[in-house]
C-alpha cells in the first residue's frame, strides 16, 4: 500500500529538487501545527506524522502520511496516501488513498506540502463520523495491483467533510 509506482518513478528534476529543499527549510522554520516530519536523506519521499486536532473525533490519535514527489514537481501533484492504519473517514479508503480534489484535478503548483497537510487536517477535523467511504471494498479491491491514487478517476461531489 505504499505505492509501488513511486519506486519506479524517475529521479527529481533540478527544479523539483531546489523547490523541495526550500520547502524543507520552510517546514523546519515554520512547521504546520499538528504535523511532524521525520526528515530522512530521501528528499523524494516524506513521511509525516499527523496528530488529530483537539476537539475533533480524531483527538489523541496519530497517523502517518506518505508523500512521494514526481520528477516534475510542482508542475505535477505529489502522491499523498495514509500509511496503515489509515484514519476512519468518509473520504479515506482503507488502503490509505484520499479522496481530496487538490491532490488530483485541482492541484496547483502554488500549493506546498504544508498547505496539503493543512487541507488534510481540515478534512479530518470536519468529519463527525468514523466510517469508510461507501464504495471502500470495491475500490480497494481494484487497487490490489499497487495502483496509485493518481491513476484513479475521482468524482468529487461532497465538500461538507
Amino acid at each position: 500500500m505504499t505505492g509501488s509506482s513511486a519506486s519506479s518513478r524517475k529521479v527529481l528534476s533540478k527544479i523539483a529538487t531546489n523547490r523541495l529543499q526550500k520547502e524543507l527549510v520552510e517546514w523546519q522554520v515554520n512547521p504546520p501545527s499538528g504535523f511532524l516530519h521525520k526528515v530522512t536523506d530521501n528528499l523524494q519521499r516524506w513521511v509525516i506524522e499527523v496528530y488529530g486536532a483537539q476537539g475533533t473525533i480524531y483527538a489523541g490519535e496519530k497517523y502517518q502520511l506518505q508523500v512521494d514527489f514526481p520528477e516534475h514537481y510542482p508542475m505535477e501533484a505529489p502522491q499523498v496516501i495514509f500509511l496503515h492504519p489509515a484514519p476512519l473517514h468518509p473520504h479515506i479508503y482503507s488502503n490509505g488513498h484520499i479522496c481530496l480534489d487538490i491532490l488530483y484535478d485541482s492541484w496547483s503548483p502554488a500549493m506546498t506540502v504544508s498547505s496539503i497537510c493543512i487541507s488534510i487536517l481540515s478534512m479530518l477535523s470536519s468529519s463527525t463520523v468514523k466510517e469508510r467511504p461507501e464504495d471502500n471494498d470495491r475500490y480497494v479491491k481494484n487497487c490490489r495491483n499497487g495502483r496509485s491514487p493518481k491513476e484513479t478517476r475521482w468524482w468529487f461531489h461532497d465538500d461538507k467533510v
Binding site: 468518509p90 467511504p133 464504495d135 487497487c143 478517476r153 468524482w155 468529487f156 461531489h157 461532497d158
Partner: peptide, 11 residues
C-alpha cells in the same frame, strides 16, 4: 454521500 470512484485512465 461519499466519493464515488471509477477506475480508469484519465483521458
Amino acid at each position: 454521500m461519499v466519493c464515488e470512484t471509477n477506475i480508469q485512465q484519465i483521458p
